[in-house]
């Protein structure tokens, strides 16, 4: 039973089904309950898997590695172990560069991460050198309005003592000063 305002319904088209609510209506000596809260917390021990383990071990050493699809020869980062196009295991590891290129981006004006980013900030799709599929990353050290397709970036890493087996090792990406990659060369990556 509710004491909130009745919800407006269109007249004539449908009516509420006839339900005998007399029993409910007779409950007058208790407050209505509109919300119960059941906190639930679970801890999961995720398995990165063989391919991701190799990736994470590399990133711990400030290296980026991808894996090649045996059929299409495309290089995937981060590798999941299987090429989504052929359905086959990606067994060949490929050493990638630590630089990349902006293939698209957006400028974010709200802090969605909860850790007080400078607003606005840029979230970009970045094609890491040597790979064939862009990853998302934060772009800094450049005014948001100056970010553009084809902008060359370097990865900026946490201090050596902070390095772990995590993507978080890359703090953000920043311009590396190289000339832009022509748009035509990026057409296949969005």
């Amino acid at each position: 039973m509710s004491d909130s305002a009745p919800i407006e319904l269109p007249e004539g088209l449908w009516s509420q089904p006839a339900v005998d609510t007399s029993a409910v209506d007779s409950i007058t000596d208790v407050e209505s309950v509109q919300l119960i809260t059941t906190p639930a917390k679970f801890v999961y021990d995720y398995t990165p898997g063989v391919a991701r383990t190799r990736f994470l071990r590399a990133i711990e050493q400030k290296r980026l590695v991808g894996q090649r699809c045996p059929e299409t020869q495309k290089v995937y980062i981060p590798p999941a172990g299987v090429s989504p196009v052929s359905g086959l295991p990606t067994l060949e590891e490929v050493e990638l560069g630590l630089d990349g290129t902006v293939v698209s981006y957006c400028i974010v004006n709200l802090d969605f991460t909860g850790n007080a980013q400078e607003i606005p900030y840029v979230s970009a799709l970045i094609l890491v050198d040597g790979s064939d599929i862009p990853i998302y990353g934060l772009v800094r050290e450049i005014a948001p309005e100056d970010v553009h397709f084809g902008l060359r970036l370097k990865s900026v890493w946490v201090e050596p003592e902070e390095m772990t087996t995590s993507f978080e090792n890359i703090k953000w990406w920043a311009p590396n000063g190289e000339p832009d990659v022509p748009k035509s060369e990026l057409a296949d990556y969005v």
Binding site: T47, G49, V50, V82, G87, P89
Partner: peptide
């Protein structure tokens, strides 16, 4: 516990 394989690595050989 298939503790070395993620879900896709677990099921891929079975499917194939």
């Amino acid at each position: 516990a298939a503790s070395t394989l993620n879900e896709v690595e677990l099921i891929q050989p079975v499917i194939h």
